[in-house]
């Protein structure tokens, strides 16, 4: 029997978005399992609103009763359901990446508790989007697979509408004396 077949991508996202902001959008498959249990059980694994990366294991808890897990599973009394193929993971990379998305997400990505947790599930241009990032220039965005192409097309349309010269679209150099409260 042939070895496991290659997983076809859900969108044509590969390389730079149009427009001047120099953002790259690439689709990279991410095997994910949903771990369901009572919230108090999951609290011992990972508090709500947090993500955890340790080697190959990645945990994301943006639901009271569910944790998304990728990589080797640690034992625990939860019920697992494979969801990896139903979700498409995009990576948006570039200096403006998080700031660009923040314009369009219903929730503010620079709110204090979000900046600290670096992960959120919110809505962007009519799409449910799960976002997480280790630094603001490399953001993971997960949408339902059936909406992947639509999401990629939408980001392209938005990227076209920006100007490098428009001061309101990118964070300004920090004035040495200014308090650390960047909007």
């Amino acid at each position: 029997m042939a070895d496991a077949p290659e997983i076809t991508r859900a969108s044509d996202a590969e390389g730079f978005l149009p427009g001047p902001l120099g953002l790259r959008l690439d689709e990279e498959f991410l095997p994910l399992t949903a771990l369901n249990a009572k919230p108090e059980v999951l609290d011992s694994l990972l508090p709500f609103g947090r993500m955890h990366q340790d080697g190959a294991t990645f945990l994301l808890r943006l639901w009271p009763g569910t944790i998304w897990s990728s990589g080797p599973l640690s034992a625990g009394s939860y019920r697992a359901a494979d969801i990896g193929h139903g979700l498409t993971r995009f990576r948006l990379r570039g200096v403006e990446a998080l700031h660009f998305l923040d314009h369009y997400t219903c929730a503010t990505l620079f709110a204090p508790h979000i900046r600290q947790a670096r992960c959120i599930r919110t809505r962007l241009g009519g799409h449910d989007a799960t976002l997480w990032w280790h630094n603001t220039r490399d953001v993971h965005a997960v949408v339902y697979r059936s909406a992947a192409q639509s999401f990629a097309d939408h980001l392209r349309a938005l990227a076209l509408r920006h100007d490098p010269a428009d001061p309101s679209t990118y964070p300004r150099p920090v004035n040495p004396g200014a308090p650390d409260r960047r909007g």
Binding site: F48, G49, L62, P64, C106, A107, A111, H113, I120, R121, T122, R123
Partner: peptide
């Protein structure tokens, strides 16, 4: 109660 204050269009 979990995510904090969010816009009506997320609900």
């Amino acid at each position: 109660p979990h995510c904090g204050l969010r816009e009506e269009s997320e609900f």
